[in-house]
Design a protein around this nucleic acid. Sequence first.
DNA 1: GGTAGACCTGGACGC
DNA 2: GCGTCCAGGTCTACC
Length: 265
Amino acid sequence: MLTRIERLETGRVVELSISEVAGGVTVQVCDPLNGAEREEVSRKIWWMLGLGEDLGPFYDLARGEARLAHVERQARGRFLRSPTVFEDLVKTILTTNTTWAGTIRMAEAVVAGFGDPLPTAPSRHAFPTPQQLAAATEAELRGGGLGYRAPFVLELAQRVAAGEIDLEALKDKSYPAEQVRRMLLAIKGVGEYSAASLSLLLGYYHSIPVDSWARKLVAREWYGGQPVGQAEIEAVFERWREWKGLAYWFWNWEQAEEKEATEKK
DNA sequence: GGTAGACCTGGACGC
DNA sequence: GCGTCCAGGTCTACC
């Protein structure tokens, strides 16, 4: 079961408990929701779980590749997204130049420091809105351990709150992939890696978010350990065409990782 | 266009 | 316990 504290458009803060059931998912909320709130929750869950995605063509391609055999069998291929593109973008900025534990620490600080509390459990908070983060100061964000990322997050929140950037418009996939990439790269704190990560989350599956770990694994698997860059990694996954980001993401790296671990000993 | 250095933090390591 | 080094992605200044 997945739980999440969510701030609704009416300002109400509720806890959502999402469970898998035969043929779909069910969402439980402690307090009754009105019609508009139910529609909002439904719309958000639909987006978070990627329930409208048709991964059939990807499964067709993956069927012939042993390293992707698990994908269709385990019904994988979807990403768990945040309800808003803004939240995913902030979290992506928090993944850069730090460890995963560091990212979690920073995200928790943002939520606890600036998000609305759940009335029945005030120590738990919803992710802050762009307006709430825009009202913060750089010093407050730095105090949350964001370090040099603080001005990036603040500027992003201020631009979204002011209506200068409409991130949520990116959800309908009506923009060409290259235009989305350029829009994301125009945001301070977003480089090639972050833009590719966000593009994947938005359903532009041709993008490969190349980080240092990816470079290491691909170098070991295909290039005899020689250093590789974005171009070499793109070349390896080129045959997956518009699905290459998914092929990369769900590739079974266990052999390469085991080799890496063995050689470290 | 390419490169070097700075940014910030936590963890690993040596003393 | 303390100090040092390193990893991580992006920005900016410089060539």
